[in-house]
Design a protein around this nucleic acid. Structure first.
Lengths: 216, 216
DNA sequence: CACGCTATCTATAACCC
DNA sequence: TGGGTTATAGATAGCGT
C-alpha cells in the first residue's frame, strides 16, 4: 500500500569474515543461532543416515550444551574405545575409565594376536603342503622301487606328524618359533645302495634318487 | 556457447522427508555431504564464537569421524567432569562407563568367535590328515602296482587341494559350511582292470584294492 | 568415494520488538 | 535471551564422471 521507498527494511544476510566476532553482543546472538542450527543439522544427520552422533558445545561463558543420538555417553564411549584418551582428566572416574579401558583393550589385543597366530599357522601348513612329496610326478613315481616307496612313506608319516604338531601347535604367546613342518628334510638323504631287487622299472637309471628329488 | 536446451541438466535441490533414507547408496552420499557440512559448521561456530566444540560421528558402517576444538578429549573431559556427582551409581559417568564396557565386550566376543572358528578349522585339518592315505601300511604299500600308485598320487593331490581350500577357508562369518577336506572319497573307486603289466609284485593277489583300503 | 553441476531449499546477518 | 522479518549467502538433492 505504502509507496515503495528507496530504502529497504533490511539489507539481508551479509557475508562475514571467518574470525572471532569482536562485538560481544553480536557474538552471543550468532552463537545462539548457530548453535541451534548445528544441533538441528546433527539431528538431521542422525535421522537421515542412521548415524550415531555426539555433539558437545561450551560457550565462552562456560555453559554446556550437548546433543547425542542415541545419547552422548554411548557415542563418546564407543569413540574412546578406539581412541583412548591420552591424558584423562584428573577425575577419579576418568582414571577408572581409562584403567578399565586399557585392561580390556589388552584382552582384545591378545585375542587379535591369537587370531593372527592361527592365520600364520594356516599359511605355514599350506606352504608345507605346497612343498610336500605330493609333488612327485607320474614319471618319477613310476621309477620308485619298493624301498624307495618305503622311505617315501616314512617321510609322509613324518610330515603328517609335523603337520599335526603344527595344528595342535605351540601356545599363542610362546616365544619359540613354530616348528618347521618341512623339517622332514632332516631325514637322512636317500642312500645310494637301495635294494632294487624286487621291483621292475620301465627304465632304469644309473643314478639313485637325487637329494632334491622330493623337493624336500 | 551452446544454445539453451529445453531440458534442464538437473532439477536442483529438492525437499526430502525427515526419515531414514531408504536407498543405501543415496544415504551414503548424503552422509558424506552432510557430515562435511556439519564439521564445517562446527568449525565456524568455534571460530566465530570462540566456543569449545566436540563432535563425534559414527556412520552406520561403524566408521568414526570426529572434530574437536581445541580437541575432543578436553571438551569431553570437561563435559563429564562438570557435575561432581555425589552418587556415581546413576550418573552420566556410570552410563558412560557402562557404554564403554559394553562396546569392549562386543569387540572381545567377536575376536573370540574368530579364534574359535580358527580352532575348528585346525581340528578339521587334523582330522583330514588322520584319515588320509598316509595310513597305508608297509605291507599294503608294497602291493601297489604302478597304476594304483598313480591313483594314490591323484588322491593325494586332491587331498592337498582340499586342505589348501580349507586353510584359505571361508570367512569367519560365512554362512556356508567349510568344505569337507576328505571329500576325496568322491573319487571313483579303484577299478578292477588295472594294468599290472609293467610291475612285478612280491605276491600277487587275486582281488584288486578294496574300496576301504585307503581309509577313504 | 570424491568432485562438478544446477536449481532449489535452508540458514542466518542485520535490524527490529 | 528469545522471536520475527527480509534479503542473501550457503548448503545440498539429484544426476554425471
Amino acid at each position: 500500500m505504502a509507496p515503495p521507498q528507496g530504502r529497504k527494511k533490511s539489507q539481508g544476510r551479509r557475508k562475514i569474515e571467518m574470525k572471532l566476532i569482536a562485538d560481544e553482543n553480536a557474538r552471543t546472538v550468532t552463537f545462539s543461532k548457530r548453535r541451534a542450527g548445528l544441533f538441528k543439522k546433527a539431528t538431521e544427520l542422525s535421522i537421515l543416515c542412521g548415524a550415531q552422533v555426539a555433539l558437545i558445545i561450551f560457550s565462552i561463558g562456560g555453559r554446556a550444551y550437548s546433543f547425542g543420538h542415541p545419547n552422548v555417553e554411548s557415542v563418546v564411549g564407543r569413540f574412546f574405545n578406539r581412541n583412548p584418551m591420552p591424558n584423562p582428566q584428573d577425575s577419579v572416574h576418568m582414571r577408572f575409565h581409562a584403567a578399565m579401558l586399557q585392561q580390556l583393550k589388552e584382552q582384545c589385543d591378545q585375542k587379535v594376536e591369537e587370531v593372527e597366530a592361527k592365520k600364520k599357522r594356516g599359511k605355514e601348513i599350506e606352504t608345507a603342503l605346497e612343498n610336500s612329496p605330493y609333488q612327485i610326478s607320474d614319471e618319477r613315481l613310476s621309477m620308485l622301487d619298493i624301498n624307495q616307496l618305503k622311505r617315501l612313506k616314512d617321510m609322509m608319516e613324518k610330515l603328517r606328524e609335523n603337520v599335526r604338531r603344527l595344528v595342535n601347535g605351540p601356545t599363542v604367546n610362546s616365544v619359540e618359533p613354530p616348528p618347521n613342518p618341512m623339517n622332514v628334510a632332516a631325514v637322512p638323504p636317500i642312500q645310494k645302495d637301495v635294494d632294487l631287487a624286487n621291483v621292475e622299472r620301465e627304465k632304469r637309471e644309473a643314478s639313485p634318487i637325487p637329494a632334491d628329488w622330493l623337493k624336500l
